[in-house]
Amino acid sequence: MEICCKINGEERKLCFEPHERLLHVLRRHGYYEVKDGCSEGHCGVCTVLVDGKPVKSCLMFAAQAEGKEITTARGLGSPESPHPIQQAFADEGAVQCGFCTPAMILCAHHLLQRVPDPSDKEIRRALDGVLCRCTGYQKIIKAVKTAAQRIGGEAK
């Protein structure tokens, strides 16, 4: 089957089998920043934003993305012009192997959109769907705080 949706601001047509999940369809269309960790909803590295909200793309049926706006980490910024959250992750050493990073950044983005100055507790809860096997989370939490300060500073 075929659907139309917007991915990182671009109109896209996606073709797939009716049972396929969004994760596998996105990767087949070249969005490799969306990672495949477990394919069963546990690890969260497949997280993308659908209409601005994080969801696990390994469970969402691709057919349900019809007419939606999908954002992957690539949609937030590029190596030449990184988003403040991406920059903060790099600066704070919040990236080791990097497998969880795109998902962490999207979850952080969703949080900072709603809560510009989050507490530790709010950050932990916002990231509770993504596993990191490298960093021990402390630096990731720090990076989200740094990003919040920088974005807050820019807004002032």
């Binding site: 969260g44 696990k56 469970l59």
Partner: peptide, 9 residues
């Protein structure tokens, strides 16, 4: 109940 991305689903 599950986690943040799952609660959105």
């Amino acid at each position: 109940l599950a986690d943040t991305p799952l609660r959105n689903m």
